[in-house]
Write a protein that binds this DNA or RNA. Structure first.
Lengths: 259, 259
DNA sequence: GAGTGGTCTAGACCACGTA
DNA sequence: ACGTGGTCTAGACCACTCG
């Protein structure tokens, strides 16, 4: 537990551990206010900087949040389920599965999204997955999704420019039937997809766009859509704040692995 | 960018931004050493604590790591692909997909795992998913997996105790044919699964077990295995350090959604 | 106006790795 | 032996929110 190189635990780490135990053991209700920095310096008899180091640790763990100048508060997690397979299987495989999902549904929350379309030289990640030729450009539809006015996730869809030029995809408006349908009509139906998911701390840009609190990691979900002949025609980069999402996959009809 | 409540950017935030730009723009090679704290205090003409705050920010973003008392170093990301569907589809759907995966393979790295088996009153998460009666116990196989001696992920498999008592599952040894096979032989074949994935900062316990650097989020992958009648018989809780894993799903044969 | 957290300073001592 | 980062202290001023 954060032992210093000496055989002892730093004072700030002990304070952090104290507070962490109180938070996780449910002593305080969610959203409760913690003692002030002044309270803690008095209680533990240390300098303010030491208390601040303890609190900063908890902030970076995502356990508490500072609402200056009001104080520190216990953070609550209210993730919604997020389903990459959504359109494929709108219904859960079984009522049992549904149970878990009911806890966090978007019922009654008002969705909204902003859309920007532009032509770009895409980032290396995307370029590789789209198998773009050197210097070849892509169209990107950048969306930020909101729920009740709060940013929920971002969704940047990249298409090889040559495939979508002069299609509806280039217009910054909702596409009721979906961009995939448009792409299919243009002769590029997607029949397979590769989902890649990894997690990291957000960039300052992402913190800004998604209004992320410190200590909030993001999941990066990259979906590559392929035509029957294996040509990639679409790469979607989703940024999912960890405090707002649970990604769900349902699998069935096969022997299931352990890992 | 970390503006203070005044209309200015904090000095530490500017220093962090400077360094961040240098790191992400590839000015320095990966694993390069940053200037020392003393260098930076001199360069920017500020107190050491200010420089340390900038560096701490980058550490928490996962961009750099401190190897005291040697200095700060740029962090490298070398994730391996992790496939929940592994046994289902050992081969990628197409050579195109394989391309992305070749970059990070476990070739030539020596895998090892530790196994502990115990009987526990499982955490609430697990209890709910296993639909355990009040006070009902579970067997848990806790595994830590290593690659070349370094911890890679943890895998805790929970089973209702009544189903697995007196089976091979209770012995802390490798099960060559897999715990699922044992469960199937006992009359509980799994035909469906629900995967839930979310991301958060690790607990101190996880930091210890997985030897995580600061600024490393984890993905929590919970797999619930169900019998044909919908009874959950197994819940697996995987903890996947973000700097070591990319989770991969392949989907095919269906219309694919955008989200 | 009182109290909060955010920022910044100028010191100090320590353990540890490396040269 | 030296330089490194880790820890801790004792101050200071500020902007903001709330009563």
């Amino acid at each position: 537990m954060a032992a210093t190189r000496q055989n002892r635990v730093a004072v700030w780490a002990q304070i952090a551990e104290d507070l962490r135990a109180q938070i996780t053991d449910g002593t305080h209700p969610a959203d409760a206010q913690l003692p002030t920095e002044a309270d803690l310096t008095a209680k533990y008899g240390v300098a303010r900087a030491t208390v601040r180091q303890a609190l900063a640790a908890l902030v970076n763990e995502g356990l508490i949040v500072s609402r200056a100048p009001r104080g520190y508060f216990i953070r609550l997690r209210k993730p919604l389920y997020y389903r990459p397979q959504q359109e494929f299987r709108p219904q859960p495989l079984s009522p049992e599965m549904d149970r878990f999902m009911m806890d966090h549904s978007a019922d009654g929350r008002e969705p909204r999204q902003t859309i920007e379309v532009s032509i770009v030289d895409p980032p290396e990640d995307v370029k590789k997955r789209l198998k773009l030729a050197d210097g070849e450009l892509a169209a990107v539809r950048r969306r930020i999704r909101y729920l009740d006015g709060e940013p929920f996730n971002t969704n940047d869809s990249y298409f090889p420019l040559r495939l979508v030029q002069d299609t509806e995809i280039m217009r910054p408006a909702d596409i009721a039937r979906g961009a995939n349908e448009v792409l299919a009509e243009a002769g590029y139906p997607q029949v397979r997809a590769l989902d890649e998911i990894y997690t990291r701390m957000p960039t300052p840009e992402e913190i800004r766009r998604l209004d992320l609190a410190p200590g909030t990691p993001v999941a990066c979900h990259i979906c590559t859509g392929l035509c029957p002949d294996g040509t990639p025609v679409r790469v979607v980069m989703n940024i999912l704040p960890g405090d707002r999402h649970v990604i769900v996959y349902e699998r069935g009809g096969i022997d299931l692995d352990e890992k």
